[in-house]
């Protein structure tokens, strides 16, 4: 355990020294401050952030993580020859970068959180913090996984962009196409399952449903307004937890078997 904590501490210091981590904090702080300045109602700024962060966090996190791990590939040749388990090395890196990235994002959100404090319910704020954190961890895990699957750094960056594009824009189109293909007779449970596959959509849902602005969600919102009656948040939470575990578990499995 002591060795893991040593490794984690070292990785955390490395992560906190990365410009892309701090760049994410500055982007978020600038964006939220700009929205607060542009709108006279902090609730409107919160609704705008709730609609935007599910797209921005995965883009920054997945790309940053993929580039990060690709840059470390050669160094692993030295690290993994040491008396330390591969799982420990990968987990320390995942935890350190996820923690650093999520803390940087929350730091960026601070102006908004202060502005809406007392205006919206604490549950809504907690939900915003929770979903931003969950998306940060999901994107770091996904970026690391894509980097392990790709042979070159360029391939990892390309795969990260494609994955983001798919979940940000194409997945909803796939659901729409699937609904159309079965002439609107797809059971709600099937459509909901398709929605829950997409972590970006799940994060958006979790916050937007709480803000009661489901009209922002289009087709997804209409289905969910019918389907969710209080149990929606638990389902969203479980889906996000699953998405944190899945890429990390797959990444750990590949990392522990990969040739370096």
């Amino acid at each position: 355990m002591r060795r893991f904590l040593n490794l984690f501490g070292r990785e955390l210091r490395e992560a906190l020294g990365r410009p892309w981590i701090w760049g994410s904090a500055v982007t978020f702080a600038g964006g939220t401050a700009g929205l607060l300045w542009a709108t006279d109602d902090p609730r409107k700024a919160l609704a705008a952030v709730a609609g935007l962060f599910p797209y921005v966090v995965p883009l920054l996190g997945t790309l940053g993580a993929a580039i990060e791990l690709a840059a470390e590939r050669g160094f692993f040749e030295l690290v993994l020859a040491q008396p330390i388990s591969r799982t420990m090395v990968f987990q320390a890196k995942f935890l350190a970068f996820s923690l650093a990235f999520s803390c940087a994002l929350l730091l960026g959100l601070l102006p908004l959180l202060i502005a809406v404090w007392g205006v919206v319910s604490p549950v809504t704020l907690l939900l915003l913090v929770g979903t931003v954190t969950a998306l940060a961890w999901i994107s770091i895990g996904s970026g690391f996984l894509l980097c392990l699957l790709a042979r070159e750094r360029v391939g990892a960056i390309g795969a990260a962009l494609v994955l983001w594009l798919y979940f940000a824009f194409l997945h909803d189109l796939v659901i729409l196409w699937a609904c159309q293909a079965v002439a609107g007779s797809a059971p709600d449970a099937v459509v909901l399952s398709l929605i829950l596959i997409n972590p970006i959509e799940v994060a958006r849902l979790a916050v937007v449903l709480q803000l009661d602005i489901a009209a922002l969600l289009g087709i997804t919102g209409s289905i969910l307004s019918r389907f969710f009656h209080g149990g929606g948040l638990a389902i969203c939470g479980s889906a996000l937890a699953f998405w944190i575990i899945l890429p990390n578990a797959a990444g750990t499995w590949i990392f522990s078997r990969k040739d370096f």
Binding site: R3, G74, F75, E77, L78, A81, Q82, P83, I84
Partner: peptide
């Protein structure tokens, strides 16, 4: 692997770190 000292063929070390930091890092690990 504690019994091994390994020198790789390619020295692809983190470019922003110094030799001293690298040595301390390995010392911490081992």
């Amino acid at each position: 692997r504690r019994l091994l000292g390994y020198m790789p063929q390619v020295y692809d070390f983190p470019e922003h770190r110094s030799p001293r930091q690298l040595m301390e890092w390995l010392k911490e690990i081992r």
